[in-house]
């Protein structure tokens, strides 16, 4: 099939960017979206032009590197997948596809479709851990955890840190991201001990970095490739009030 791509090109953080139109002919429906971009880049390099820069790595939906805003949706219009898993089957011959970087103040554009997501790391550094030294852990079965709680903790822990929640949110809020980690640890007895310090530190860092607040629109949940639930945000709120 033949496609028109409108891709955001921006040389570096300081320059202004703009959309550049590319024609892609003979796109196979079996390609993934990133493979389609690979093909475009191959063409550009062969013409000695600057290829489109984008983050990507595992290409199996788990590392969280890839992420672009495609036709009004983070990771494209198909729910519960990352950009690397977005198949070209979902597009039709003649389609125009808009490709934009994540937009948020704490995620400045570095180049083209690459944004700086180190803000996420900073939030995790602020408190996304359980303080236990190597060698100090008790025998694994000495603390029992209810299966239901443990499974819930797992559901919260599958966040891949891609930033789609921030990209989708009209407020560029990171609440879903923060709440996933808070929930994982809040649900496990191992994490309860420093729950108060954790939630205070992570929320404080989140605010400091300039993310917006949550207005419960649910866009994050709708776009999360790992289907992290809004209930996590309610839990984060609860945990935060408990920390007063």
């Amino acid at each position: 099939m033949n496609l028109i791509l409108k891709i955001w090109r921006q040389k570096n953080p300081k320059t202004m960017g703009n959309f550049v139109t590319y024609r892609m002919d003979d796109v196979s429906p079996e390609m993934s979206f990133l493979e389609m971009l690979d093909a475009l880049n191959k063409k550009l390099v062969e013409e000695d032009k600057d290829p489109v820069a984008f983050d990507h790595d595992c290409r199996e939906g788990i590392c969280g590197s890839c992420g672009m805003y495609i036709n009004g949706h983070p990771h494209g219009p198909v729910p519960a997948i990352t950009t690397c898993h977005l198949s070209m089957r979902y597009f039709r011959d003649g389609d125009t596809i808009w490709v934009e970087p994540w937009r948020a103040k704490p995620f400045p554009v570095i180049k083209d479709l690459i944004v700086d997501r180190s803000a996420f790391d900073k939030i995790q550094t602020a408190g996304g851990f359980i303080s236990v030294n190597t060698g100090a852990a008790p025998e694994a079965n000495s603390i029992l955890v209810r299966k239901k709680k443990s499974d819930e903790a797992f559901d919260s822990s599958v966040c891949i840190g891609c930033g789609a929640c921030v990209a989708a949110c009209k407020n560029a809020s990171a609440m879903l991201f923060v709440s996933a980690k808070i929930s994982q640890f809040a649900l496990l007895p191992q994490g309860r001990i420093e729950a108060k310090e954790r939630v205070r530190a992570m929320v404080e860092k989140m605010d400091e970095l300039g993310f917006g607040s949550c207005s419960n629109t649910g866009a994050c949940e709708a776009e999360c490739p790992k289907q992290i639930k809004l209930t996590n945000i309610a839990r984060l709120n609860r945990e935060y009030y408990k920390a007063f």
Binding site: K6, F19, Y69, I70, N71, G72, H73, P74, P77, W98, E100, R103, A168, K170, T217, G218, A219, A222, E223
Partner: peptide
């Protein structure tokens, strides 16, 4: 975003 926000909200 130029392509708007079409998320299910």
């Amino acid at each position: 975003y130029v392509s708007g926000n079409k998320s299910d909200t």
